[in-house]
Design a protein around this nucleic acid. Structure first.
Lengths: 110, 110
DNA sequence: AACGTATTTGGCAAACTGGCAAACCATAAA
DNA sequence: TTTATGGTTTGCCAGTTTGCCAAATACGTT
């Protein structure tokens, strides 16, 4: 059941702003590190804090940014909160990025 | 001839920084507008300037940002400079973004 | 109540933003 | 050479944002 693409192509200024916000959320190395970790499964905040090696409040803020644009979900279970990627598409973006860099790097020594 | 993936998975901090830079370049609505235009074919700076409706120097700066991370190429032909997407992958990222938003939006009214 | 886990808030220096204008560079035409 | 056209670079701006931490707060379990 595919959703009907009521707006086939034309993008509005709001669309671009929305897209820009998502990219901005991804424009930080530590947040990318977090997303990468989440791409391999859900993690609680403490885990992610250890991973990035910053204060837990800082990590919580990073997670809030990712949540703000809908990239991740939070699920409280007892005293812990587990984060996960909301959408596998994010992984695609990651793959695209890899391809992009690979292509550009190979182009370098032509 | 596929390039040998010497580094199959492990991402380094530098990788994340590099990725973050690309996303940062895409984290502006006007630049997104430009990329969208270029996704439909090359354009000279004057065209793009008319499209976004800003000073040509501003547009030139935006293009410099996109060039800086390798997203676009510039090709001088006479007195004009034509810009184009360096890599079709960028379009994939765009598509992913669309899917992402569509998925999130549909989730909104569940 | 006390503990463990996470979020919020406030503060900070540093970096960055997006835009314009003016000066500058490069090519083509007169 | 001069002039015109098309882009780029640089300087500048006020304002915003960044990323981080520490302290205060909230939530849940024991």
């Amino acid at each position: 059941m595919k959703a009907a693409p009521k707006t086939p192509k034309r993008k509005t200024p709001a669309d671009f702003r929305k897209g820009a916000d998502v990219f901005k959320a991804l424009s930080n190395a530590n947040r990318l590190l977090i997303v990468d970790a989440l791409s391999r499964g859900e993690h609680c905040v403490a885990d992610l804090t250890e991973l990035v090696g910053l204060d837990i409040s800082t990590v919580s803020n990073h997670l809030a940014v990712l949540r703000g644009v809908g990239l991740v979900t939070d699920d409280r279970r007892g005293t812990q909160v587990f984060y996960a990627l909301r959408n596998p598409c994010v992984m695609n973006i990651f793959c695209c990025l890899d391809d992009f860099h690979a292509a550009n790097d190979s182009r370098r020594h032509e």
